[in-house]
Design a protein around this nucleic acid. Structure first.
Length: 112
DNA sequence: GGTATGACTGTAT
DNA sequence: GATACAGCCATAC
């Protein structure tokens, strides 16, 4: 069980990492969780994204699952929004899946 | 306190 | 590639 303080640190770390994702790149929930030192909390990363502070500017559309699939779906408000944002950054998305995932993938561990 | 659920992941079929 | 299943952990009821 995480203390309130640890939870807050975890959340902030996650937000920090997400904000570090370069334009036109993307990463996975698991990679982020690993980067902040909690490799088994990938589900919590997703939860924080869905509950992220509206005041914080989090590019959550650059975070997908380990296979480059946009599992967020309609959580972004309207279906296709996530796909739109990614494609506007030059990331090709077909059928909710990022193309050339290996090239688009950005590993936080190599950048922090 | 048990059960179901979720923006997950890895392995197996 | 698509499905199924088993771990994983916080939350909601």
């Amino acid at each position: 069980m995480l203390t309130l303080k640890e939870k807050e640190e975890f959340k902030q770390s996650v937000y920090d990492v997400v904000r570090l994702i370069p334009y036109g790149r993307a990463t996975s929930y698991g990679a982020i969780a690993k980067a902040v030192g909690l490799p088994h909390l990938s589900r919590m990363v997703g939860k924080f994204m869905s509950q992220c502070d509206p005041s914080d500017n989090i590019p959550a559309h650059r975070v997908v699952n380990s296979q480059g699939i946009l599992s967020a779906g309609e959580v972004f408000g309207i279906p296709g929004q996530m796909k739109n944002l990614l494609e506007s950054e030059g990331v090709l998305v077909i059928n909710n899946r990022i193309q050339h995932w290996k090239k688009v993938f950005w590993d936080p561990i190599n950048e922090i």
